[in-house]
Amino acid sequence: MSWTLNQMRTFQALSQRGTMAAAAEALGYSIGAVSQQMAALEASVPRQLFLRDGRNLLLTDAGHVLVRHVEAILNAEAEARAAMSEDEQQQSTELRLGVFGSAAVTLVPRGLLLLQESAPNIRVHTQEIGVDQMTMAVVRGAVDLALGVDYPDAPETPQRGTTIIPLEEEEMLMALPYAADTFEVPSSPARRRKLARESDWILAPPDSYLGRAMRVACVRSGFEPRVVHQVTDSAVAIALAEAGVGITPVARRMLQLRSTKSALMPFPKSTRRRIVLVVRTASLERHSVTAVAEAFKRAAVDEP
């Protein structure tokens, strides 16, 4: 069965007015055009649609069933036309945003609040995804854009067709296996290096981006970490450091996810990470995508 919108409009007009002449007048067609369109429509369906009563045409039971669906289709088509005629910035739309732990707790609520103020017509659905899977989730189209991390000491090759939008940069620190009120943090890089070399470490596995980046950071700082505990969850790693079992790397946003009483000290050589947005380059032509990006840029800068 194959029907055109014109056939549907003509069928609706005929069902409402009862004669081909009245339908033709309402639509601005000739009677012959109305007759041809109805003949084509009836030929495409397996049941009779009209009963003739002199010049009047009455709907059969099948005709009554079809007209209800036709009205729904024509209403949807009218809504689609109206939506396409709106200013792009006013159109209602939905996006999927990939998020991860420490960003989800701190940056995401602020970003969504600012987006609601600047573009209330854009609705964002968040989806928690592992940091290592973020870029591929964008490439595959599982999400429209995603929050991710980038470690300048261990940069990863960008996926073709994606753009990385920096949001903020923060220093990586070492959470020590000592309580802040009972231990004096070494002030010189040499003493920090000695402490780091002689201590046990809690790191993410080496096949994870965080694990690789932190091992590179340790080597850049002049020591090889003695990894005793391999932990992916940052909150668990921070808790273990506080319990005194080793050193673990932390960033400010991680500490907002799980605060600690551990003493904190910088790496012997400055180590940083960036919070970024990952998006397909072509999608940057979408107003909704750029609006979300701008909201999260503001959230990173203006966050209390």
Rank of each mutant, 00 (worst) to 15 (best):
M1H: 10
S2N: 12
Q7S: 06
T10D: 07
Q12H: 11
L14I: 07
A22E: 08
Y29V: 00
I31T: 13
A33H: 09
M38F: 04
M38P: 05
L49A: 04
L49F: 04
F50P: 00
D53Q: 12
R55N: 09
N56E: 12
L57E: 08
L59F: 09
H64A: 11
R68N: 11
V70T: 01
E71A: 09
A72H: 14
E77G: 05
A78Q: 08
D87A: 15
Q89P: 01
S92W: 12
S92F: 10
T93C: 08
T93H: 05
R96P: 13
G98Y: 03
F100Y: 13
V105Q: 10
P109Y: 00
L113I: 04
Q116V: 06
Q116N: 07
E117Y: 09
P120T: 07
R123F: 02
Q133Y: 07
M134E: 03
A142S: 15
D144F: 05
D144M: 06
L145M: 09
V149I: 11
Y151I: 01
D153N: 12
A154T: 04
P155E: 05
E156C: 01
T157M: 15
Q159D: 11
T163F: 11
T163A: 14
T163R: 15
L167E: 03
L173I: 03
L176Y: 02
A179R: 15
P189C: 05
L195C: 13
A196E: 09
W201E: 06
W201Q: 05
I202Y: 03
L203S: 04
P205R: 09
S208Q: 09
L210P: 15
M214Q: 14
R220T: 00
F223K: 07
V227Q: 01
H229E: 11
V231G: 03
T232C: 04
A237W: 08
A237F: 07
I238S: 02
E242L: 03
G246L: 02
L255V: 03
L257P: 13
S259N: 10
K261H: 14
S262I: 06
A263K: 01
P266K: 02
F267C: 06
P268Q: 06
P268R: 06
K269R: 15
R273F: 06
L284H: 04
E285W: 01
H287W: 09
T290Q: 04
A293M: 04
K297H: 13
A299H: 03
A300V: 14
V301R: 15
